[in-house]
Design a protein around this nucleic acid. Structure first.
Lengths: 106, 106
DNA sequence: TAGAATTACGCTCTACGTAACTATC
DNA sequence: GATAGTTACGTAGAGCGTAATTCTA
C-alpha cells in the first residue's frame, strides 16, 4: 500500500520543481524529503525521479503517480473538512488541534 | 491530516461490523485496532463509534467518514496497481515486496 | 564556490503486541 | 463463563533532524 506521507512529498516536488522547495512547503528538512522519495521508489520499484543537472525531474512514472497523489491528497483533505463541518454543525464545539494532538475544546 | 492507517481500520469496522473482525482482516490484534479507532476519534474530535451491548456501531459521523475512507483507500490501491502495471510494461521486472520492504528484483 | 541532492548516523516517538481489566450475553 | 472491547505497558522500527559528502552551474 502506498504511503501517503511520501505521496505528499512527490506531489510537492511535481508542483514546485525541486526537493528543497517541497521540503520547505511541508516543513521538512531537505534530507528528510529526499529520504521519503528514495523510500517511495524502493517500495514501488519504480524510478520516479531523475537528476537533471543539480535539479530533479519526474520520470513518466513519477508524473503518473504525482497526478494520482494530488487526487488522493485532495480526497483526504476534503474528507477531513467534511467531517469537521459535520461535527461543528452537530455539536457547536471549537477544537484547537496542533500536530494531530488535541489541545483544547470549548 | 487524516491518517490512512486509521481510516483502513474504520472502513473494516464499517464493513465487518466489529473491531475484532476488522483487526483480523488487517492482521492486527484487537487492542491495536481499538487503539487506532480511539486515536482517530481524538484526532478528529468526532465520536465515530458507540458501544451497543458488546458490539460497536458507527455514529452518523462514523458512517460519513467510513464512506469517504472506502473511496480514499480505493484510490490509493488503484494508483498502486496503475503504477505497478506501468512499471511492469516498461521494464519487465518482477518485484517481491514483503511488508513494504523490497526483497528481490529480477 | 554556492546551491541542490544524497548518504550516514543518532534520537524521539509511534505502532504494535502481550497482559490485565471491564462489561455484556 | 465466553465473547467483545478497552486500558496499561514495553519494545522494535520509522520519521525526522544534524552533519558530512557529492555533484553541477
Amino acid at each position: 500500500m502506498l504511503d501517503v506521507t511520501r505521496l505528499r512529498v512527490l506531489d510537492a516536488v511535481a508542483r514546485l520543481g525541486s526537493v528543497t522547495a517541497a521540503a520547505k512547503e511541508l516543513h521538512y528538512t531537505q534530507p528528510t524529503a529526499s529520504h521519503h522519495l528514495a523510500r517511495l521508489e524502493a517500495e514501488t520499484g519504480a524510478r520516479l525521479l531523475q537528476r537533471a543537472g543539480r535539479r530533479v525531474r519526474l520520470t513518466p512514472a513519477g508524473q503518473l503517480l504525482a497526478g494520482r497523489a494530488a487526487e488522493i491528497i485532495g480526497r483526504i483533505d476534503a474528507a477531513g473538512n467534511e467531517l469537521a463541518a459535520h461535527v461543528g454543525l452537530t455539536t457547536g464545539l471549537v477544537r484547537l488541534v496542533l500536530q494531530r494532538q488535541l489541545v483544547c475544546v470549548w
